[in-house]
Amino acid sequence: MMIESTGQKVLKVLLYVFLIITAAIMILPFLWMLSASLKQDRDVFTFPIQWIPSEPEWSNYSKIWTQIPLLTYILNTVKLTLIVTLLQLFTSSFAAYAFAKLRFKGRNALFLGYVATIAVPWQAYMVPQFMMLREMGLNNTHLAIIILQAFSAFGVFMMKQFYEGIPTELCEAARIDGMTEYGIYAKIMLPLAKPSLSTLTIFTFVNTWNDFLGPYIYLTRDNLKTIQLGLRSFIGQYSSEYGLIMAGSVVTMIPVIAVFLSLQKYFVEGVASSGLKG
């Protein structure tokens, strides 16, 4: 390495200062949330901020489960998120294989259909979609939410971009060895696509877990509601139960943060190789 000049050293110090400030801005709201979730309502806003409560109010975490049917909400959300993520991963990675590695009639036209709809915001057709699903008797069912989320053009597009980076010779060789296309997909492509699949998992999981408008439109019965709806209506009703709101918020965050942390090492790689950077 080159010898660092004083200018470069100053630059480096500035970088660290910038980074630490940014990291603080990013993380402090979460720490504040955690801290407030262990306080009594009247202590939440005391200033200067007492980051570690002297007498942690653990009861917030037990109360929140009885104040709202939190367990039902969580189970509903877990169920929906798991099904949607699995379906999304399977159907996208499956369809993308054909678009990337097989020649067939109508390939370009079909793919164009996919790409064209990526630019159409869901909000632009959510109304006719709702009328259609209601007509099918799917209003107030979890199936509606699954249908909404499980077949995205985005997933197909992303996986296709990734597969295209895998040399076609690999498939050719497997074909000569007598492997079927399904075999090639399952035994060659999928294992190679780990970064891409992880990225898609994070996206789908986070989106489904955090989705508000979809469930808000379709799920009006309390026993069907997701955690976002449940927490939102709790906030609407008890807007000054700060401690409880924050306890509920912490609980809602845990699963997404866990999924993100367990997959994040693939994430940058996945975004890079999937051509998401355009």
């Binding site: 990291a23 979460f30 986070v206 965050m253």
Partner: peptide, 15 residues
Amino acid sequence: SFFPYVGSLVAITAV
């Protein structure tokens, strides 16, 4: 820096 993106919207807007 990825936390705010991942964090559940209802929770972080409440904060």
